[in-house]
């Protein structure tokens, strides 16, 4: 059997990789994908704890997180499309105007 801490280490590893992606990459789509990675890492955590405690609440919260990820991806990609249409770029450090 696998100790719960191994799930936690995997989860925090993925979470850290996600943070690295968010803070270092320039491409907005990859930043968005790294955020998905972080949300995913949190899900592993929740499900592992759910197993440890023996209740289904972790599963329910993971479902809410997936819902949230779907909403975030839809809005985020909508913003990216409209931004790309105006500025012809995908780089986050060129997104430096508050109003166009």
């Amino acid at each position: 059997m696998i100790p719960t801490s191994h799930y936690l280490f995997l989860s925090l590893g993925l979470f850290t990789i996600g943070i690295i992606g968010v803070v270092t990459r320039r491409n907005v789509i990859i930043i968005l994908m790294s955020i998905e990675l972080m949300l995913n890492a949190v899900n592993i955590n929740l499900v592992a704890f759910s197993r440890l405690v023996g209740s289904a609440e972790g599963h329910v919260f993971a479902i809410f997180i997936i819902t949230d990820a779907a909403a975030e991806a839809a809005v985020g990609l909508g913003i990216i499309i409209s931004f790309f249409r105006n500025r012809e770029t995908l780089l986050s450090d060129e997104m430096d105007l508050l109003k166009w």
């Binding site: 059997m1 696998i2 100790p3 719960t4 801490s5 936690l8 592992a48 759910s50 197993r51 440890l52 023996g54 209740s55 289904a56 609440e57 599963h59 329910v60 479902i63």
Partner: peptide
């Protein structure tokens, strides 16, 4: 109790339990 393995499954028909919760 992180170090020990997680207890064997207590959530057997997990789909039903998740649905009810």
């Amino acid at each position: 109790p992180f170090g020990e393995p997680a207890p064997a499954t207590m959530l057997e028909p997990s789909t039903q339990i998740v649905g009810r919760t």
